[in-house]
Simulated scan of single mutants.
Amino acid sequence: MTSAPPQKRPQATQQLLREWPPGYGGIERVAHELAMVWGGVVWSLDAQNRSSSEQDAILACYPRRRLARTPPLGRLVLPLPSTGLWSLLRSDQPLHGHLPSIGVLLVLLVARLCRPRRRVTAHWHFFFEPASGLSGRFFSVYQWLALRVVCGLPGVITTSPLLKQELLRCGCRPERVAVLPCCLSDDQEAAALVLKRSPSSSSAHQPMRVLFIGRLGSYKRLDWLLHSLAELDQAWCLDVVGDGPRRLEFEALADQLMGSQSDQLVRFHGRLPEADKQQRLLEADLLVLPSQSSNEAFGIVQLEAMAAGVPALAFQRWRSGMGWVCQLPALNWSQTPQDLTPVLQKLAGDPALLRELGVQARLRYQQLFCRSIWLDQLKRWSNPLNSSQTPVGFRARG
């Protein structure tokens, strides 16, 4: 009796991205979670010089390498000739690049040209918003070029059905584009799913507890949330978790809008350890992600809230899936900035609805975004590619 030949293990997949993973941004976190499954070296252009100074937000147990690059010119960084770049281009291991980044795009293109039979794939994280001026024209040219390149790759991952539809409209072949929503780590998911809501949460005797988690930068639009909350005639309080260049500006706006009650109504916590962030989620009734740009294409913080049984509000933007992530059957609203104040007013006055939305949020997370589903989807996408077959896109429910 002859034994079956041993099965060939899939090759580890190398990744390339602009920033240093795992970091605090969505792209870095996605690359990190893929590396935890795929193994392989994660290469970075380290655009913000964090490889030597950044304290890892999440433990990274996979090899990371920094490519030599040009000094940043605005957001533009390009790889320089180096032994690391030569090693990356000569390798026959699969290569997966995270876009947008013109530096990453160029490496993907050269890798594809150098070794046509090598598996080179891309992760399309978001589309740029149309903009005027020199920078707007630059991003438009980059995006046009990026779409031409990814249309010729054997596999492209994006994060929501809305982004897949837009990639198809731009010329990508349906069988080559797959939807793989973002995910939480094992530890994050386990901690969130066991959180028990306080019996007094969302009661008529307490203010509605609103939570904002994110970088205090230009397109997050915490100012919109502050203006909307200031107009409510129901009781509320807001916890702001995160830091960034506009923090002082937002703090001043809160003082201006809330006056002497500002310190009681709005609390700026800065960056928090994971355990402290979980505590904020435990105490929250509602997460609001008031981003105005398609640069916010998903919003992983929504998953953290939904897994903990906290509903989220986000805007529906062209070329963005962030509004799709948090849609719940019991809350039918326009998902536009103009209607943020009315929907907050409605929720502040209806504790029973808030509790129902919390149940629906956790259920939606478990049905669409939980890690076991993510792992299954990733495996279904990877297997045809590992077999040198044309990848097929899997279905994203919801």
Rank of each mutant, 00 (worst) to 15 (best):
L281G: 09
A348N: 06
L344E: 11
F250N: 10
A252G: 11
D255L: 14
A284V: 11
H269K: 07
L226W: 03
P337T: 12
P342S: 09
E296N: 09
M258E: 13
E231N: 12
L272R: 07
C237S: 14
S293E: 09
V310H: 08
M306W: 00
G270D: 06
Q234Y: 04
S262M: 10
M258V: 05
W324A: 13
D255V: 00
D350M: 01
S334Q: 13
T336Y: 00
G242D: 00
A352G: 01
L328F: 13
P351Y: 02
Q345R: 10
A307I: 02
D233M: 00
R267N: 11
C326P: 02
A284W: 03
A254R: 13
Q261S: 15
R247A: 12
Q279I: 01
P342T: 05
R271Y: 12
I300D: 04
S291I: 07
W324K: 06
T336R: 14
L282H: 14
V325G: 11
P342F: 07
G244H: 02
A307G: 07
L253G: 08
S291N: 13
E249L: 07
P337F: 06
G270A: 04
K277C: 12
R247V: 03
D223P: 00
L286I: 14
L232M: 02
A308I: 00
G299Y: 05
L229Y: 07
R247E: 12
G244N: 05
D263M: 08
A252S: 15
K346P: 00
H269S: 10
A230I: 10
